[in-house]
Amino acid sequence: MSTFNEQVMHQQALCSALEIIINKALSLNEQGTEDLTRLSQKTLTIILEELGFPLSFSVYTSSKNNQILVTTISQSADCTIKTSIKTLIQLQKEKKLTELIKQDKLDIDGDIKTAQGFASLAESIDIDWQSEVARHIGDIPTYKLSQLLDKLCSKLSFAAKQITADASEWLVHEKRLVVTRSQIMHFNSQVDVLSRQTNDLAKRIDQLTNLMAETTQNKKPHE
């Protein structure tokens, strides 16, 4: 019997969409698809925790066209990476590959050169979006559109900063739901002082206990 996921074939729909997007991006890449020839016949499989099924990227090259095929077949992979989307984002930001492997957040099985080849291919993709858009809508509308997008981006960035500032103001000062950094530091230093005082008191108690014990022992021979 088939599961609901098999019935609606969301895996195949995702593969199909990815294949179209990747190959479109490769076709628009300013450096062309020559980089693909180095990875000819190679397959990289990525198993993401969030998806629950493998995504295999196989490179097909011919004299007429080079492309990447996306399937869910994992048996013939040259390299298999098991990880999560969160770890991949972390890897992209911090580039701490060895550390992530040590933490068992990333598992690489097979030829690591294949994974590196795919990674460098992804990094090399450089698309001149303005030229592409201009081909469809013309130069002047593209110029206006890019200006509009720049303005929109800077406004969105300002709005994001403003919202963050307003939210912290409201949470910290108006509703007093969150404490400030200085309040935490003050609290921490008070805890440190208290900890030191407690240690001192413990030492004094120990000293007094020892003194009492010695006094009791010295008194016994005279008796």
């Binding site: 098999e6 729909a13 399937t71 077949i73 048996q75």
Partner: peptide, 16 residues
Amino acid sequence: HRLWKRFTIDASGVRP
């Protein structure tokens, strides 16, 4: 039909 065919290829486990 494109998804049905993709499903068939995925189920075939075809290898180089």
